[in-house]
């Protein structure tokens, strides 16, 4: 019974997820802000606070950190992890969702998940000890400020987090790098 309830929830959220737009690379950030510190420790601390507050932690959404291979910017992303098959099945009602849940698997919360995310915050070094944060938020019923406020609230206690000398700021071992394919050439 619980499973049916969850699936009905998925149906609803799956339908909403289709309307999501707005990610880095599509447009400039909706809003930017700066804090003191280094990008990786501030991003990691923000993600820990969001997790502790159970934000972006459901059967549909999951948080992930990744580092850009060139700019060293850290992306904190709320990924859409609904199984694609469930999202597709939602169009056919509960029975479609059931079939989707039977064949589909949860999408990963890492850069291999390219689906339109719920929101992304990009943490970039903007000078010594200064982090610039840009926000992108998908279209949603709550509006972008709702999500930006959540991330800013989570970030409040992270102001001033610096990289400790033993942890290289730009080579965090726990952060999966962006995929680095042979770009600049057509890939067939």
């Amino acid at each position: 019974m619980v499973r049916i309830g969850l699936l009905a929830g998925l149906t609803f959220l799956g339908a909403c997820a289709d309307q999501r737009l707005g990610a880095p690379g599509q447009a400039p950030p909706l809003q930017t802000t700066t804090v003191k510190g280094d990008p990786y420790p501030v991003a990691q601390c923000t993600m820990d606070n969001l997790r502790a507050a159970k934000e972006c932690d459901s059967i549909d959404f999951g948080l992930g950190l990744s580092a850009n291979a060139v700019t060293q910017a850290i992306n904190l992303t709320c990924y859409n992890v609904t199984p694609t098959a469930v999202q597709a099945g939602a169009a056919f009602g509960l029975i479609g969702v059931l079939i989707g849940a039977a064949v589909g698997e949860r999408e990963p919360a890492d850069p291999s998940n390219k689906r339109p995310p719920a929101y992304t915050a990009v943490f970039e070094q903007a000078g010594a000890g200064v982090v610039k944060i840009g926000f992108w938020v998908a279209k949603s019923m709550e509006g972008p400020e709702y999500y930006i406020d959540k991330v800013k609230t989570a970030m409040a206690t992270c102001d001033g987090k610096m990289a400790t000398p033993t942890v290289p700021a730009f080579a965090p071992p726990s952060v999966p790098p962006m995929e680095t394919p042979a770009a600049g050439k057509p890939v067939s």
């Binding site: 694609t84 098959a85 597709a88 589909g104 999408e107 990963p108 390219k114 995929e179 770009a183």
Partner: peptide, 19 residues
């Protein structure tokens, strides 16, 4: 439809870029 989309989701995770 669901089976086609499910198969498509594998391609969506393809790490290649398509410049």
């Amino acid at each position: 439809h669901i089976a086609a989309v499910n198969e498509q989701s594998m391609r969506e995770r393809d790490p290649n870029r398509y410049p």
